[in-house]
């Protein structure tokens, strides 16, 4: 039965139900149990934003606090994954990938290929990304394109509570290393989520709105921004197909290309910076595989090529908003040779 719950609750429920179903699933990260060795309550925190709260008492010994040693515990999750466990490690902020990236991209991502197909590394790394919290340059980035660049990793960017639960269950059960990217501004959004366990395949985008005049490809928190823009566009007589990628690796090329063949006009909206990113990747895909369908240049709506600023005035300019999406969609739909 579906209830309306937050994305935070949906992720917690996915972790809890998978831990209940499969004793190989363990959870580790800074404050994930919350307050280990401290004089206050056990399970005081459950992760810095409370996503893992309550798991510690439900699954004794299987929710591990860690020192602030990302290389050691992300690597430990990867090592444990090679020994038959299914660890879910929390890299608190995606910005902290810089202190543990070797274990992810040189170790986990390469084991299967480098060892001749004999390694299985079912580790899930949950991590929080994105702007909007006035958290400035080292706690606000959208760095999933860097993970997407690496062969051997899968990358998930859910936009709703329903997708977060179904995709996380799939990630935990997946035999490859998965980077599960949670936008910090989405934890409190609500949506209908079945209580029962279910899975959503990796590599299947969802057409969240059908229009036919323009294809807007997006992901994560930007799905909500784009849907807001699509409403405004509809009022202005422009009907948009809105595609939520859900995963950037694997990438569902077919769903994108099918829509573009119908519309001939494309906007890609991403909160990440523009160089070598998802937006550029989608533009490249469309240019190389749907060139014949295109009736206008592809418009990219992304963050600027700058660090994330602190000032609320500047950060609001940094993160793409609905107006920029509307402008881009109008530009491509009105474009003619």
């Amino acid at each position: 039965m579906a209830r309306t719950i937050t994305m935070r609750e949906a992720i917690n429920e996915a972790l809890s139900q998978e831990m209940g179903r499969d004793e190989r699933v363990i959870v580790m990260g800074e404050d994930n149990a919350g307050g280990a060795g401290s004089p206050g309550d056990a399970d005081a925190w459950g992760g810095v934003l409370g996503v893992t709260k309550g798991l510690y008492h439900r699954y004794p010994g299987r929710v591990l606090d860690t020192p602030i040693s990302e290389s050691a515990f992300i690597g430990a999750a990867i090592g444990a994954a090679t020994s038959g466990m299914r660890p879910v490690a929390e890299l608190m902020f995606i910005d902290f990938m810089g202190v543990c990236f070797d274990q992810i991209f040189n170790q986990a991502a390469k084991f299967r290929y480098m060892f001749g197909g004999k390694a299985v590394t079912p580790a899930t790394i949950r991590t929080m990304y994105g702007g909007g919290f006035r958290a400035a340059a080292q706690h606000s980035q959208s760095l999933y394109p860097i993970f997407t660049h690496i062969p051997g990793l899968k990358v998930v960017t859910p936009s709703t509570p329903y997708d977060a639960k179904g995709l996380l269950v799939t990630a935990i059960r997946d035999d490859d290393p998965v980077i599960f990217c949670e936008h910090k501004a989405l934890y409190d959004i609500t949506g209908d989520v079945p209580e029962d366990l279910y899975t959503i395949p990796l590599g299947e985008a969802e057409v969240v709105r059908e229009g036919g005049d323009v294809t807007i490809v997006t992901l994560g928190r930007m799905v909500h921004t784009v849907l807001e823009a699509a409403e405004q566009l509809a009022s202005a007589g422009v009907a948009a197909d809105v595609i939520d990628l859900r995963t950037t690796s694997p990438l569902d090329e077919d769903t994108i290309l099918e829509s573009v063949e119908g519309t001939g006009r494309v906007v890609v909206v991403d909160e990440a910076t523009p160089r070598c990113g998802i937006a550029a990747d989608i533009a490249s895909l469309v240019a190389s595989k749907a060139f014949g369908s295109l009736q206008a240049p592809v418009e990219l709506v992304t963050a600027p090529h700058t660090p994330v600023p602190f000032s609320d005035v500047l950060e609001d300019l940094y993160v793409p908003d609905a107006q920029r999406v509307v402008n881009a969609a109008k530009a491509v739909t009105s474009w003619s040779r």
């Binding site: 363990i26 010994g61 299987r62 290389s71 050691a72 515990f73 992300i74 690597g75 430990a76 999750a77 990867i78 090592g79 444990a80 994954a81 090679t82 020994s83 038959g84 466990m85 660890p87 070797d102 274990q103 040189n106 170790q107």
Partner: peptide, 18 residues
């Protein structure tokens, strides 16, 4: 990678322990 192994060993040891 110089120093690549010790974190992985922690994971294997954790797996054995659990």
């Amino acid at each position: 990678i110089v120093g690549g192994g010790p974190p992985l060993v922690c994971g294997r040891a954790l797996g054995s322990k659990l």
